[in-house]
Nucleic acid binder design. Structure first.
Length: 431
RNA sequence: GCCGCCAUCGUCUAGUGGUUAGGACGCAAGAUUCUCAUUCUUGUAACCGGGGUUCGACUCCCCGUGGCGGUACCA
């Protein structure tokens, strides 16, 4: 009979959820869901000095934000009895000794080969002579990671241990512990690490490493999920954007990459941009809300502004900069008003012509379609080039080299504000 | 130092003895256009080195090199 798959994500709450840990959690979650198993979360909070409640909350929040719900939650700090009784068992077998207040596990002295049969790496061989005796209990009476980890995985009937490659060298010691406790070791899968651009282990030095920071910058969970899962795993159908359920369906540990993967923020941005563009205006407004509090006021204007810049923002925190000129008269240098193929005279003429025709437009005709045809007409009747008129209107309204089209801006700003900004531009040109 | 893992375009990767080595990001060019963004098209660029095995190696083996991890009373 096939036993039910049970996996766990076992962070220590000594810091905020790291992006690499988030990926480990994701791989565990995917494996569990793929196999109809259980995904457990276990806080390895045996280090009393460094473990903190806020970090537990941070990790819980991060997991939830990523939509990786845990089926069971455990705290090692509440499982003291289990470690004590496991210790008793080992003591009875004469495998334990005390030294300097600590409790040690004797590593067999004969050259014993230990094979780690890893799902992603195959059989890896170690020799017990290369290991020192293992501390099981620290002198403060708390169990070490190695011991608590193994005891818990046995009691929680964990069938697959999916964790970072940094644990591969620990695994043979753990296997010795399993054997000493008469337990069959679980299957192991050590996944490679996420790397800095210089291929060193991903760290604070070269960018953000806390999931938090990505949430605050305005990344979407679906973008992060796709990005993280494809850092080491690839879809057999080579799809670039997958839903969680598509990932679960296709996920397979045998397709995970052995080598480390560089964290490429540009790729993440690309994915995020894709998902951001797919949002409806309502959804987008809702997502943007925390990032645009300073623009609360004219709700209609805010909505038009957001609508016009939706395909430009790669992350939600790009938004304020992209829409600020909607709410305040922009600063810009006068020469920017002149299109590269135009002249000050032609530009001045273009703006005056625009001002003249726009002033005559009735409120009900103030739509981008109508405005477009009105301005097109003005250009041909005055023998102007498009760049003599559209470019300076756009700059007059936005102050930017790149922005949505002039008629979209005119529509969004409304007649009064548009005319006011065009007048300011005409004055700047000073003709 | 010792032990272990890893190695395809700049980056993420496909590839499991015979391919014009494919895709995506990035970058570049073009189309559209007043601009930027979007979209579409095209281009750019890789099998770490050396030995084997084989009729034939990116693919299998060995050595080297490089990167990374472990070697804690952190996890």
């Amino acid at each position: 009979m096939e036993e039910k798959v049970r996996v766990r994500f076992a962070p220590s709450p000594t810091g905020p959820l790291h992006i690499g840990s988030a990926r480990t959690a994701l791989f565990n979650y995917l494996y569990a869901k793929k196999n109809g198993g259980v995904f457990a979360l276990r806080f390895e909070d045996t280090d009393k000095e460094r473990s903190q409640k806020v970090f537990e909350e941070n990790i819980l929040a991060g997991i939830k934000w990523l939509r990786l719900e845990a089926d069971e939650i455990y705290y090692q700090s509440k499982r003291e009895n289990s470690y004590q009784s496991a210790l008793k068992k080992l003591t009875e077998r004469g495998l334990i000794y005390e030294s300097d207040g600590g409790v040690y596990f004797k590593i067999p002295v004969e050259n014993k080969k230990i094979i780690v049969d890893d799902i992603v790496r195959g059989k890896v061989e170690f020799d017990s002579k290369d290991f020192d005796d293992l501390v099981l209990f620290k002198k403060d009476g708390t169990p070490t990671f190695h011991f608590a980890n193994v005891v818990d995985d046995i009691e929680m009937k964990i069938t697959h241990v999916i964790r970072g490659e940094d644990h591969l060298s620990n695994t043979p010691k753990h296997i010795l512990l399993y054997e000493a406790l008469d337990a069959t070791p679980p299957k192991f899968a050590h996944i490679s690490l996420i790397l800095n651009p210089d291929r060193s282990k991903m760290s604070k030095r070269s960018g953000d490493v806390d999931l938090d920071e990505y949430i605050r910058a305005g990344y979407l969970p679906e973008a992060l999920i796709n990005f993280l899962v494809q850092l080491g795993w690839s879809d057999p159908e080579s799809r670039e954007f997958l839903t969680m359920s598509e990932i679960i369906q296709s996920f397979d540990l045998s397709r995970v990459q052995k080598g480390g993967a560089v964290f490429d923020i540009k790729h993440l941005n690309h994915l995020n941009h894709h998902y951001l563009m797919q949002k409806s205006l309502d959804e987008y407004m809702q997502l943007a809300e925390p990032f645009i509090k300073q623009f609360a006021g004219d709700k209609a204007l805010l909505e038009s502004a957001i609508k016009l810049i939706q395909d430009r923002a790669q992350i939600l925190s790009d938004i304020p900069e992209l829409i600020s000129y909607f709410f305040t008269q922009p600063e810009y240098d006068t020469p920017l008003l002149i299109f590269k193929k135009s002249s000050p005279e032609q530009t001045s003429k273009g703006l005056s012509v625009a001002l003249k025709v726009l002033e005559k437009v009735s409120p009900k005709d103030w739509t981008k379609e109508k405005l477009q045809s009105i301005l097109d007409e003005a250009i041909s009747s005055e023998s102007l080039l498009p760049g003599d008129l559209f470019w300076p209107i756009r700059v007059a309204l936005s102050g930017q080299e790149g922005s949505p089209s002039p008629v979209e801006l005119l529509e969004a700003f409304g007649k009064e504000e548009s005319i006011s900004r065009i007048k300011i531009a005409i004055n700047k040109l000073g003709v």
